Simulated scan of single mutants.
Amino acid sequence: MKKTLAKLADGRELIYFDTDEGAVRDAPDLRPLDRVSSHPQLRRDAATGDWITIASHRQDRTYHPPAGECPLCPSRDGRLSEIPAADYEVAVFENRFPSLAGGTGRCEVVCFTPEHAAGFADLTPAAARLVLDAWTDRTAELSALPGVEQVYCFENRGAEIGVTLAHPHGQIYAFPFVTPRTAKMTAAATAHRAATGRNLFEDLLSDARAATDRVVTAGEHWTAFVPYAARWPYEVHLHPHRRVPDLTRLNEAERAEFPELYLDLLRRFDRLFPVPGRPQGPAPTPYISAWHQAPRTGGEELALHLELFTVRRTPDKLKFLAGTESGTEAFINDVAPEEAARRLREALA
């Protein structure tokens, strides 16, 4: 992997990742940009102890631009974008409209491919491996920043999720605090260790592999399964068989196997809901894909894993977080986990 550092016109960092060691990425950013001026605030909710980020400047961020004005496509034919190069493989840059900035963390955008109409599932295994390498690099770099407690790599896909840019991309947040879900998982794992002497995530993986009816697919080093108490209609957790705290600790065998398995999962999701009038073709399924990694402090029991889920529950119905979910965080799932796993197993048949 070749890593090339660059600067955008307003001083933000841009990083190119290439499989070709001879790739040259030296095109300058010719846009007349002012320096980014964002001052998000962190406020603690006294009733729950959760940190809330106030980022009112994000109201002005780019919203559903036409394909010809996409800021994540390469700069070509006189159209200047966030990527000055005329082509790229994977590009990462500081978000121009960050939720976290300065002393309150950092937000980065990860462009998976220069192809505007593609999706992650359309990548080759080699291209998906390059994205994994980029995630790993950024996890290492951002974890070392002063004040960063947790690095969170994720992808939002689809208008139903709230995505404002159609180009295939993800994001990375470097939080100055431990997020609420991570804190809950850490507390549960600590309690499980105290009660059993074992690691919670190792037991969850072992239980799923033993039950088999919740396993979607598996390899030599990874298993994808629907959790016993899934919150979302179709939710899959992907775990390495060897417990590690974060992406930087995966070995080469685990890294080599991941792309094929992950691409297989994404393609299964895309075949869950046929396109109306075109039942033979896959429907792009909206999803959130997120890496859960151990925080800098207090995360000894947390295990690296990826959680992939969709808000779609039928071809024409979405799972809305209404009264119970939004009001009390008490989830109600309309699809049995075992049935969801069966459908995903059969999706590529």
Rank of each mutant, 00 (worst) to 15 (best):
R106M: 07
R312I: 09
A340I: 10
L145T: 03
D246E: 13
M185I: 00
L263S: 02
V148Y: 05
R267N: 11
Y173D: 05
A208D: 00
E108I: 03
N156F: 03
S81I: 08
L8I: 07
A340P: 00
I54S: 09
I332V: 15
V275N: 11
F225N: 02
E21P: 04
E82D: 14
F93L: 15
L348K: 06
A47R: 07
P66K: 15
R35C: 03
P286Y: 08
P114W: 12
T104S: 08
L200M: 02
T310L: 04
H221M: 12
G298L: 09
H64E: 15
V311F: 08
Y262C: 09
A126E: 09
A290D: 15
Y63K: 14
F154W: 12
R96L: 15
L100F: 13
T190D: 07
T328G: 00
W51D: 11
T248K: 06
L72H: 03
H237D: 08
S99N: 12
D133T: 05
A290W: 09
H39E: 14
R345Q: 07
P259T: 10
L33V: 00
G119Q: 03
W51L: 11
L130F: 01
R181E: 15
T212K: 06
G158M: 10
G298D: 01
W222G: 11
A126S: 11
I288L: 09
P233W: 09
L304G: 07
P74I: 09
A194H: 06
L30Q: 08
A174K: 12
S289M: 08
P315G: 04
N251P: 08
A195F: 08
W135F: 14
E346M: 12
E300P: 10
L123V: 05
V215A: 01
G68Q: 13
T190Q: 08
L266D: 00
P315T: 07
T186M: 13
Q41A: 08
T223K: 03
G197S: 05
T297Y: 13
P286N: 08
T217Y: 02
D18N: 07
L80N: 02
D133A: 13
S75G: 13
W135C: 03
C153Q: 09
D45A: 11
H239W: 02
R25A: 14
E69P: 00
I54V: 14
G281D: 08
G299P: 01
P274A: 04
S206T: 14
A211I: 07
P114Q: 14
A23C: 08
A144R: 07
V275I: 14
T48V: 13
P259V: 12
D20P: 01
R25Q: 14
C107Y: 04
G68H: 06
S143V: 04
L238G: 07
A330W: 14
L30A: 13
H305R: 01
A86F: 04
L272T: 00
T136I: 11
L80F: 13
F201H: 06
F201C: 02
R255C: 10
